[in-house]
Amino acid sequence: MSLFVLPFPVIDPVIIEVGPFALRWYALAYIVGILLAWRYMRRLVLNDALWGGKARPTPVDLDDFVVWGTLGIIIGGRLGYVLFYNPAYYLANPGEALAVWSGGMSFHGGFAGTVIAMILFARRRGLSIWTLFDLAGCAAPIGLFFGRIANFINAELWGRPSDVPWAMVFPGAGPEPRHPSQLYEAALEGVLLFFVLRLVSHRYKMLEKPGFIAGAFAFGYGVTRSIAELYRVPDAHIGYLSGFLTMGILLSLPMILVGLGVMIWSARRTPAAI
């Protein structure tokens, strides 16, 4: 065991509290992540050099989509957590299933909810579903980054015991130093994935091939999440499913396979056929 352990920077999860109203870092992370993702998507559609003449949503379309996407993230994320991570508890306590303020959100559920919202919105506006998927894929790592930072501030989803020099003792996790796995996820799912997708969209101009970046996001998230899961302690009520396999890895495997398939499909399509 390492003799040197970094102290956990204890931060109150509540930023400000006025009467019954409390603004939490977790809520602020969602708000900032969604707003910055929306602004980034607007910048992308306004950059003609990225599209090769391809049709794409207008900035006004994206302004209107923000509400749809937000509902998809929150409703899907909460229901995903209820169904994937703690169904027995919420079956016994159905009144708490929609209590988002009590904590418990699933990325995979939020991903599914956002996909449904994008399909409905695209059909309503007559937009290319794959192009909307691509835009969301480019911007999603921004929200993931802020969400993982909020997990760190909340001292939740901590890592496995470790003797690395940057190990931390998390409140409520016992006396053992642990990997700050939330920061690993912020770096992998947020920063690294964002810049990889930016490279693909800007240097290789893959927004010209609808679906490619959506597939790259699904593949990239599945891989980076699976790597981070190797350092993260699974939810106590689920544990390890088999060996090192966790629910997070299990839910990421379909994303990896589908994402790879979509990238291959998109790359092989001719521009006239898309």
Score class of each variant (00 low, 15 high):
Y221I: 02
P177C: 09
R178Q: 06
A228F: 13
I11Q: 08
F84Q: 11
V164Y: 15
A112G: 09
Y89I: 10
G53H: 09
L120D: 13
G80P: 12
R42M: 08
L132Y: 12
P271E: 14
A112Q: 04
R124H: 11
P13I: 00
S162L: 02
G77Q: 01
G248A: 09
P94Y: 01
G137K: 11
V115G: 00
A88T: 10
R203P: 00
R269I: 07
F8D: 07
P165H: 12
I264A: 10
I15Y: 07
G222R: 02
V223I: 13
G174P: 15
Y89N: 03
A150V: 07
I75C: 11
F107R: 03
L98H: 03
K54H: 14
P141S: 06
I75K: 07
R43Q: 14
A186Y: 09
G172R: 09
P161W: 01
F84I: 10
G215P: 06
A216W: 05
I256Q: 08
A167N: 09
I264L: 10
P20S: 15
Y89H: 10
G147E: 13
T58W: 06
A136L: 11
I149G: 11
G104N: 04
M1S: 14
G243S: 12
W130K: 06
E229V: 06
A29S: 08
L250G: 07
W38L: 10
G103F: 12
A122D: 06
S242L: 10
I11R: 09
F133G: 07
P180M: 02
Q182P: 04
F107E: 03
L230D: 15
P175Q: 11
W166S: 14
P13V: 12
G52E: 09
I249Y: 15
E156Y: 08
A92W: 05
G110S: 07
P59H: 00
E208Y: 00
R178H: 14
N47V: 00
L6Y: 05
W25H: 14
